[in-house]
Design a protein around this nucleic acid. Sequence first.
DNA 1: AAAGGGAGCAACCGCACATCT
DNA 2: AAGATGTGCGGTTGCTCCCTT
Length: 461
Amino acid sequence: MMNGNGSGEGSSTNAVGGDVTGGMKKGPWTAAEDNMLIDYVKMNGEGNWNAVQKNTDLARCGKSCRLRWANHLRPNLKKGSFTPEEERIILELHSKIGNKWARMATQLPGRTDNEIKNYWNTRIKRRQRSGLPIYPPDIQHRHNGFLYNQNCQIPLARLNETKSQFGRGNPLPRPLHSNQTSLSLLDPFPMGLSNHQTMAMSIPQPNMISLQQQQHQYQHHVRQPPTVFPNSEGQSSFSRMQHLKRLRNDTLEYPGIFNNNSVSTAVPMGVPIVRFKPILPSGSLMHLQRPPQQQHQSSHLMPMKMELPSNQFLPASVSNHNSDPWIQQANNNSGLLEALLEDTQVANRRVSPEYIEPTDEKTSEYKKMKIEPLEINISESEDLSAFFDLINETNASSSSPSQATTSKWVKNECGEASGVTEEDLIDMQQLSSCIPKLSLEENDPQNWNQWDDTSGTNGIS
DNA sequence: AAAGGGAGCAACCGCACATCT
DNA sequence: AAGATGTGCGGTTGCTCCCTT
């Protein structure tokens, strides 16, 4: 594939040697080609890569030139294997932002997205083959419930596609089944959900976390923290606080959302309706709702496909034997729907309680709902650790974290204040009070070293 | 020494987005 | 507004090297 080998019609030899197909050479770059490209960039600067082929004898397409320059010829490129510190950064970043190689590369001077991607892919293969978790325990536990999984990624393009389809108040494909029973996503085994389903909602895939770790989580009833997804747009702390403010203030109406006969104007399947309480009681941040008429139709509250899409699976009892057409539909859904679920998990939705109080058996009372994405956006340059420090302090003291800790989190990377008000801080404190304390042992770098000590191989070869 | 297989790496491909015309 | 062009990104492929048998 890559080399072309001149097997295509019209192969010939170009000015610098090598095989040419369709007028463009493919395959490995020669030193002569590199020199030509370097000279061109020196003269004309980066960019306008398609002009390279026009203005030089280089028979390479613009994309190829850009890639060669960016990955190999550009100055200040760091070659050689990744240092332990770089590896650590990659792990942290991947746990936060997933397969965003280019964004990771911006945090690793001298490293290219391609390098990071190759590193990650080989690492993933190695660890999965060994049956080892991808992330070290401290990262694993810190981000429990919303770690990115190599096999659970959806392309950003699909996310965007989903957003463009459903993100502007367009009619959504199917109604949310709700229930008067409130389910806390923070409860390890919410009422009405099997343990398996619960775990599927909140923890990564088995190929990502070792079975032992999952068992550990089962046995110790680890509570999952509220979803705190990083934002792909890298919003500032100020933006985060704007989101927090909107938890209180905003209204976004979804008319006809629980209309009995309508499947055209509703929240997509699987989207949890979140009842946000101004004063957050510990451990009950989110509540799933299902209309009363659904309660008797299925032993399952709703088609729970809350985990990240792709490679996802439902328990056999759900996926194979459930007669609920919604669930069957869910099992046969397209990748787009899975992407939608991912999207909606990233952007947790809330419903103002005053709009979802079911007053009778009919669903017309749901006709007016307020739904607002509950997003806490953390850019890759803003370390989540500060936020988790805040959580720890809150839990440790059983009271509000200090203003210093809080301010640490809301400051931007330049250390400047982000226009955060006292009101914002209160919001943060309320949020942090809902998140369980992190084990210091799990954050011990020594544990990390131990974790990464793969038997037979020392992590990176 | 030769063959087989895995790891690492470089490069291509397809898609999406932004900008230009 | 629509098409063309340029650029960036993530996924994938296939070659080369090296180790093991």
